[in-house]
Protein backbone atom coordinates (compact mmCIF):
# COMPACT_ATOMS: atom_id res chain seq x y z
CA UNK A 1 0.00 0.00 0.00
CA UNK A 2 1.08 3.52 -0.68
CA UNK A 3 0.12 4.77 2.75
CA UNK A 4 3.48 3.82 4.27
CA UNK A 5 5.75 6.80 4.17
CA UNK A 6 8.82 6.04 1.99
CA UNK A 7 12.02 5.80 3.97
CA UNK A 8 13.96 9.07 4.12
CA UNK A 9 17.13 7.14 3.33
CA UNK A 10 15.95 6.15 -0.15
CA UNK A 11 14.49 9.44 -1.30
CA UNK A 12 16.42 11.35 -3.97
CA UNK A 13 18.45 8.23 -4.62
CA UNK A 14 20.41 9.48 -7.61
CA UNK A 15 21.40 12.68 -5.85
CA UNK A 16 22.65 10.67 -2.92
CA UNK A 17 24.61 8.28 -5.10
CA UNK A 18 26.21 11.23 -6.88
CA UNK A 19 27.27 12.68 -3.55
CA UNK A 20 28.98 9.51 -2.35
CA UNK A 21 32.47 10.23 -3.81
CA UNK A 22 32.46 13.63 -2.19
CA UNK A 23 31.26 12.24 1.12
CA UNK A 24 33.98 9.58 1.05
CA UNK A 25 36.64 12.15 0.20
CA UNK A 26 35.45 14.44 2.93
CA UNK A 27 35.46 11.64 5.49
CA UNK A 28 38.91 10.34 4.46
CA UNK A 29 40.71 13.60 3.93
CA UNK A 30 39.18 15.90 6.49
CA UNK A 31 38.03 13.69 9.32
CA UNK A 32 40.63 10.95 8.75
CA UNK A 33 43.46 13.41 8.24
CA UNK A 34 42.46 15.36 11.31
CA UNK A 35 42.24 12.26 13.48
CA UNK A 36 45.56 10.99 12.18
CA UNK A 37 47.25 14.30 12.94
CA UNK A 38 45.86 14.38 16.46
CA UNK A 39 46.96 10.79 17.13
CA UNK A 40 50.49 11.38 15.87
CA UNK A 41 50.80 14.57 17.91
CA UNK A 42 51.20 12.26 20.93
CA UNK A 43 54.18 10.47 19.35
CA UNK A 44 57.84 11.12 18.94
CA UNK A 45 57.64 11.36 15.12
CA UNK A 46 60.65 13.02 13.55
CA UNK A 47 61.39 12.93 9.84
CA UNK A 48 58.79 10.17 9.40
CA UNK A 49 55.66 9.39 11.42
CA UNK A 50 56.35 6.76 14.11
CA UNK A 51 53.87 5.41 16.60
CA UNK A 52 56.18 5.88 19.59
CA UNK A 53 54.04 7.37 22.38
CA UNK A 54 55.40 10.25 24.38
CA UNK A 55 52.18 11.45 25.97
CA UNK A 56 51.91 15.22 26.21
CA UNK A 57 55.64 15.82 25.73
CA UNK A 58 55.21 17.53 22.36
CA UNK A 59 52.66 19.94 23.86
CA UNK A 60 54.88 20.75 26.82
CA UNK A 61 57.75 21.49 24.49
CA UNK A 62 55.47 23.54 22.23
CA UNK A 63 54.25 25.80 25.03
CA UNK A 64 57.76 26.33 26.35
CA UNK A 65 59.08 27.38 22.96
CA UNK A 66 59.52 31.17 22.70
CA UNK A 67 58.85 31.13 18.97
CA UNK A 68 55.44 29.46 19.40
CA UNK A 69 54.40 31.92 22.10
CA UNK A 70 55.43 34.85 19.88
CA UNK A 71 53.52 33.26 17.00
CA UNK A 72 50.36 33.03 19.06
CA UNK A 73 50.75 36.62 20.28
CA UNK A 74 51.26 37.82 16.73
CA UNK A 75 48.20 35.96 15.55
CA UNK A 76 46.16 37.58 18.32
CA UNK A 77 47.42 41.08 17.53
CA UNK A 78 47.17 40.66 13.79
CA UNK A 79 43.84 38.83 13.99
CA UNK A 80 42.03 41.24 16.27
CA UNK A 81 43.32 44.36 14.49
CA UNK A 82 42.61 42.83 11.10
CA UNK A 83 39.12 41.76 12.09
CA UNK A 84 38.11 45.15 13.45
CA UNK A 85 39.84 47.28 10.83
CA UNK A 86 38.89 45.23 7.78
CA UNK A 87 35.22 45.37 8.79
CA UNK A 88 35.31 49.08 9.59
CA UNK A 89 37.20 49.99 6.41
CA UNK A 90 35.24 47.60 4.20
CA UNK A 91 31.88 48.76 5.53
CA UNK A 92 32.73 52.46 5.29
CA UNK A 93 33.96 52.03 1.72
CA UNK A 94 30.79 50.13 0.84
CA UNK A 95 28.58 52.75 2.48
CA UNK A 96 30.39 55.50 0.55
CA UNK A 97 30.05 53.69 -2.76
CA UNK A 98 26.38 53.02 -1.99
CA UNK A 99 25.67 56.78 -2.14
CA UNK A 100 25.08 56.37 -5.88
CA UNK A 101 28.41 57.93 -6.78
CA UNK A 102 29.73 58.19 -10.30
CA UNK A 103 32.35 55.75 -11.63
CA UNK A 104 31.13 53.21 -9.10
CA UNK A 105 32.25 50.25 -11.20
CA UNK A 106 35.74 51.64 -11.69
CA UNK A 107 36.21 52.41 -8.01
CA UNK A 108 34.85 49.04 -7.00
CA UNK A 109 37.21 47.25 -9.37
CA UNK A 110 40.22 49.25 -8.22
CA UNK A 111 39.51 48.51 -4.57
CA UNK A 112 38.78 44.85 -5.18
CA UNK A 113 41.83 44.42 -7.40
CA UNK A 114 44.36 43.64 -4.65
CA UNK A 115 42.21 40.67 -3.65
CA UNK A 116 42.91 39.13 -7.03
CA UNK A 117 46.66 39.17 -6.32
CA UNK A 118 48.35 36.31 -4.56
CA UNK A 119 49.61 36.95 -1.05
CA UNK A 120 53.14 36.48 -2.34
CA UNK A 121 52.78 39.46 -4.68
CA UNK A 122 51.13 41.55 -1.98
CA UNK A 123 53.90 40.65 0.45
CA UNK A 124 56.65 41.58 -1.99
CA UNK A 125 54.94 44.81 -3.04
CA UNK A 126 54.57 45.95 0.55
CA UNK A 127 58.06 44.83 1.41
CA UNK A 128 59.25 47.34 -1.17
CA UNK A 129 56.82 50.09 -0.22
CA UNK A 130 57.84 49.81 3.43
CA UNK A 131 61.55 49.52 2.64
CA UNK A 132 63.37 52.62 3.96
CA UNK A 133 65.69 52.79 0.97
CA UNK A 134 63.12 52.57 -1.84
CA UNK A 135 59.68 53.06 -0.34
CA UNK A 136 57.64 55.66 1.51
CA UNK A 137 60.48 56.73 3.77
CA UNK A 138 62.87 57.56 0.95
CA UNK A 139 60.13 59.34 -1.03
CA UNK A 140 59.13 61.58 1.87
CA UNK A 141 62.80 62.28 2.62
CA UNK A 142 63.39 63.21 -1.02
CA UNK A 143 60.65 65.86 -0.60
CA UNK A 144 62.88 67.50 2.01
CA UNK A 145 61.70 65.99 5.31
CA UNK A 146 65.12 64.52 6.13
CA UNK A 147 64.32 63.14 9.57
CA UNK A 148 61.17 61.26 8.48
CA UNK A 149 61.25 57.66 9.60
CA UNK A 150 58.76 54.95 8.60
CA UNK A 151 60.26 51.48 8.56
CA UNK A 152 57.90 49.17 10.45
CA UNK A 153 59.37 46.05 8.90
CA UNK A 154 62.77 46.82 10.44
CA UNK A 155 61.51 47.39 13.97
CA UNK A 156 60.79 44.15 15.82
CA UNK A 157 58.25 45.86 18.09
CA UNK A 158 55.93 46.96 15.31
CA UNK A 159 56.86 44.71 12.37
CA UNK A 160 53.58 42.81 12.67
CA UNK A 161 51.71 46.05 11.93
CA UNK A 162 53.66 46.35 8.70
CA UNK A 163 52.17 42.97 7.80
CA UNK A 164 48.77 44.21 8.96
CA UNK A 165 48.90 47.10 6.48
CA UNK A 166 49.52 44.69 3.63
CA UNK A 167 46.77 42.37 4.87
CA UNK A 168 44.28 45.23 5.06
CA UNK A 169 45.24 46.47 1.62
CA UNK A 170 44.50 43.06 0.20
CA UNK A 171 41.47 42.13 2.28
CA UNK A 172 39.39 45.32 2.47
CA UNK A 173 38.18 45.04 -1.11
CA UNK A 174 36.53 41.68 -0.54
CA UNK A 175 34.77 42.88 2.60
CA UNK A 176 33.71 45.98 0.70
CA UNK A 177 32.04 44.10 -2.17
CA UNK A 178 30.31 41.70 0.20
CA UNK A 179 29.04 44.61 2.31
CA UNK A 180 28.01 46.49 -0.80
CA UNK A 181 26.00 43.50 -1.97
CA UNK A 182 24.39 43.41 1.46
CA UNK A 183 23.59 47.13 1.38
CA UNK A 184 22.12 46.82 -2.09
CA UNK A 185 19.86 44.07 -0.80
CA UNK A 186 18.23 46.47 1.67
CA UNK A 187 14.82 47.65 0.50
CA UNK A 188 15.08 51.35 -0.40
CA UNK A 189 11.68 51.88 1.20
CA UNK A 190 13.18 51.04 4.60
CA UNK A 191 15.55 53.96 4.15
CA UNK A 192 12.66 56.18 3.19
CA UNK A 193 10.63 55.06 6.18
CA UNK A 194 13.55 55.85 8.47
CA UNK A 195 13.91 59.31 6.96
CA UNK A 196 10.21 60.00 7.46
CA UNK A 197 10.67 58.86 11.06
CA UNK A 198 13.51 61.37 11.38
CA UNK A 199 16.22 58.78 12.11
CA UNK A 200 19.68 60.14 11.21
CA UNK A 201 21.64 58.14 8.64
CA UNK A 202 24.24 56.78 11.10
CA UNK A 203 21.49 55.53 13.41
CA UNK A 204 19.70 53.94 10.48
CA UNK A 205 22.90 52.07 9.63
CA UNK A 206 23.54 50.90 13.18
CA UNK A 207 20.04 50.03 14.36
CA UNK A 208 18.28 49.02 11.16
CA UNK A 209 20.53 48.33 8.19
CA UNK A 210 23.40 46.45 9.86
CA UNK A 211 21.04 44.16 11.81
CA UNK A 212 19.27 43.42 8.51
CA UNK A 213 22.66 42.49 6.99
CA UNK A 214 23.38 39.83 9.61
CA UNK A 215 23.72 36.94 7.08
CA UNK A 216 26.22 38.92 5.02
CA UNK A 217 28.18 39.78 8.15
CA UNK A 218 28.37 36.13 9.17
CA UNK A 219 29.58 35.01 5.74
CA UNK A 220 32.18 37.76 5.72
CA UNK A 221 33.25 36.94 9.26
CA UNK A 222 33.86 33.30 8.34
CA UNK A 223 35.90 34.29 5.27
CA UNK A 224 37.96 36.85 7.17
CA UNK A 225 38.61 34.66 10.21
CA UNK A 226 39.72 31.65 8.16
CA UNK A 227 41.98 33.99 6.21
CA UNK A 228 43.51 35.22 9.45
CA UNK A 229 44.07 31.81 11.06
CA UNK A 230 45.80 30.37 8.03
CA UNK A 231 47.99 33.40 7.32
CA UNK A 232 51.31 32.07 6.09
CA UNK A 233 52.31 33.13 2.57
CA UNK A 234 52.06 36.87 3.29
CA UNK A 235 54.55 36.48 6.14
CA UNK A 236 56.92 34.33 4.12
CA UNK A 237 56.93 36.79 1.22
CA UNK A 238 57.01 40.02 3.20
CA UNK A 239 59.16 39.42 6.29
CA UNK A 240 60.14 35.74 6.40
CA UNK A 241 59.10 35.88 10.06
CA UNK A 242 61.66 38.53 10.90
CA UNK A 243 63.23 40.67 12.07
CA UNK A 244 64.32 37.85 14.40
CA UNK A 245 61.14 35.97 15.26
CA UNK A 246 59.00 39.09 15.58
CA UNK A 247 56.50 38.28 12.84
CA UNK A 248 56.27 34.51 13.24
CA UNK A 249 52.79 33.00 13.02
CA UNK A 250 51.41 29.55 13.98
CA UNK A 251 50.93 28.25 10.44
CA UNK A 252 54.53 29.06 9.64
CA UNK A 253 55.66 27.30 12.82
CA UNK A 254 53.76 24.18 11.74
CA UNK A 255 55.25 24.24 8.27
CA UNK A 256 58.79 24.85 9.46
CA UNK A 257 58.60 22.09 12.07
CA UNK A 258 57.19 19.52 9.68
CA UNK A 259 59.22 20.18 6.58
CA UNK A 260 62.39 21.93 7.74
CA UNK A 261 63.14 20.88 11.27
CA UNK A 262 62.11 17.28 10.50
CA UNK A 263 60.05 17.29 13.64
CA UNK A 264 56.66 15.97 12.61
CA UNK A 265 55.43 15.39 16.16
CA UNK A 266 55.99 19.01 17.08
CA UNK A 267 54.26 20.19 13.90
CA UNK A 268 51.28 17.92 14.59
CA UNK A 269 51.00 19.23 18.13
CA UNK A 270 51.08 22.82 16.88
CA UNK A 271 48.45 22.18 14.23
CA UNK A 272 46.28 20.38 16.77
CA UNK A 273 46.49 23.48 18.96
CA UNK A 274 45.39 25.60 15.99
CA UNK A 275 42.46 23.28 15.36
CA UNK A 276 41.51 23.44 19.04
CA UNK A 277 41.52 27.24 18.98
CA UNK A 278 39.29 27.36 15.92
CA UNK A 279 36.97 24.76 17.42
CA UNK A 280 36.69 26.75 20.64
CA UNK A 281 35.41 29.68 18.60
CA UNK A 282 33.28 27.83 16.06
CA UNK A 283 31.47 25.29 18.21
CA UNK A 284 29.81 27.70 20.67
CA UNK A 285 28.94 29.98 17.77
CA UNK A 286 27.42 27.11 15.77
CA UNK A 287 25.31 26.16 18.79
CA UNK A 288 24.03 29.70 19.11
CA UNK A 289 23.38 30.06 15.42
CA UNK A 290 21.83 26.71 14.53
CA UNK A 291 20.72 25.38 17.91
CA UNK A 292 18.52 28.41 18.50
CA UNK A 293 17.18 28.60 14.97
CA UNK A 294 14.54 25.92 15.59
CA UNK A 295 12.92 28.00 18.28
CA UNK A 296 13.02 31.12 16.16
CA UNK A 297 11.29 29.24 13.34
Amino acid sequence: MADARPSQLFRNKSAKIAAIPMIVTALFVFVGGTAWTIVYSFTKSGLLPRLKWVGLDQYERLWSTKRWIVSIENLMIYGLSMLVLVFVIGFILAALIDQKIRFENTIRTVILYPYALSFVVTGLVWQWILNPEFGIESIVRSWGWESFAFDPLYNADIAIFGVLIAGLWQGSGLVMVLMLAGLRGIDQEVWKAARVDGIPAWKTYIFIVIPMMRPVFITTLVLVVTGIVKIYDLIVAQTGGGPGISTEVPAKYVYDMMFQANNLGQGFAASTMMLLTVALVVIPWAFLEFGGSKKRG
Binding site: D187, E189, V190, K192, A193, A194, V196, F207, I208, P211, M212
Partner: peptide, 14 residues
Amino acid sequence: GIGMVFQSYALYPQ
Protein backbone atom coordinates in the same frame (compact mmCIF):
# COMPACT_ATOMS: atom_id res chain seq x y z
CA GLY B 1 4.15 66.87 9.45
CA ILE B 2 3.58 63.81 7.28
CA GLY B 3 3.40 60.07 7.83
CA MET B 4 4.02 57.61 5.05
CA VAL B 5 3.02 54.03 4.27
CA PHE B 6 4.86 52.02 1.63
CA GLN B 7 3.99 49.16 -0.69
CA SER B 8 6.64 46.85 0.79
CA TYR B 9 5.57 47.85 4.34
CA ALA B 10 9.21 48.87 5.05
CA LEU B 11 9.04 47.74 8.67
CA TYR B 12 12.25 47.48 10.68
CA PRO B 13 12.62 43.67 10.71
CA GLN B 14 14.82 43.36 13.81
